[in-house]
Nucleic acid binder design. Structure first.
Lengths: 152, 152
DNA sequence: TTGACGCCCATAGTGCCCCATGATATCGAT
DNA sequence: ATCGATATCATGGGGCACTATGGGCGTCAA
């Protein structure tokens, strides 16, 4: 299985390091990478991380935009300039930088959450809050659809 | 027969493991899988479990969505981050994690219920309650239809 | 010198593999 | 039809391997 799925919470040690879940690591290694690329999510207090191919999904989307439009420039800047690298040590750990803490509020623990082609890093509490909100939104949407369909 | 049908209740042992019913297992193995993927149902205190292809039909739908839209993010989050893996051991058992217990209330026994393309896992009592409620709803609906049809 | 970082090894917990046992079902022979 | 042999399955438990985590030590740069 070559997909990032599920979620795990790991602790940051006294030296500011945290283990990337073994399952995620094996996917990264299978792709032949020794470092990760991370973006600060636009809408969420989380980091999107993965191999360099993390960008291709967004690049494809960019290609379909007008290259002279301002939003395309902004997006390109966001993708290529605002990210950062995460170096994996010999034991599959990364050091948590201020770059990460500022945006996510991460302090002592990190929740790693799969996102199919890449994964996310969260403060555990914020992850839980977001999870609850997403479930609630989806349940609500489903209820609306049932109403308009009139069926059961 | 390559469909998940019927229901069986098995006990969780002292190490927190439970046997997946042999009939379900044979379907999974025929599909060539050694691990399952499980989602917490949005509207029921149950888990939807099956092979990873449980996701593919959603993934295809997601690929055609705008990667910056919120609904697509919600859907992706639910499918990829909110789920969890269930690893089958050599004897066809899975370990029951807190992830499962919280959502389902499962404690000492698990009811496996077929759902055609996948299957569900329930607390036996809740399964029975749900079963009774479904039967009652269906009977009620049938009665309504008989009335409006003006039959008998 | 001091602190950040990379590389190394130690350890505890737990997840996974393997084998044993008893219950139940299937089938064959008498 | 009865009884016994065999296969299949749920359940139990021992023990190893791997992972997360902690910490030592050398290197390099400020």
């Amino acid at each position: 299985m070559n997909r990032f799925l599920g979620h795990v919470t790991n602790r940051i040690d006294a030296k500011g390091r945290v283990s990337v879940p073994a399952h995620f690591r094996s996917i990264i290694q299978a792709a032949g990478h020794t470092e990760l690329y991370a973006l600060r999510s636009l809408h969420l207090p989380a980091l999107d991380a993965g191999g360099p191919e993390l960008l291709t999904r967004f690049d494809n989307h960019l290609d379909s935009e007008d290259p002279f439009a301002e939003t395309a420039d902004d997006m390109s800047f966001y993708l290529h300039a605002d990210g950062g690298f995460l170096k994996l040590d010999g034991d599959g750990r990364i050091t948590v930088t201020d770059f990460m803490r500022e945006h996510t509020g991460i302090s002592s623990d990190v929740t790693f959450a799969g996102a199919n082609t890449h994964f996310q890093m969260w403060h555990p509490d914020r992850f839980e809050a977001h999870r609850a909100k997403v479930r609630q939104r989806l349940a609500e949407k489903r209820r609306q659809e049932n109403l308009t369909a009139g069926k059961s």
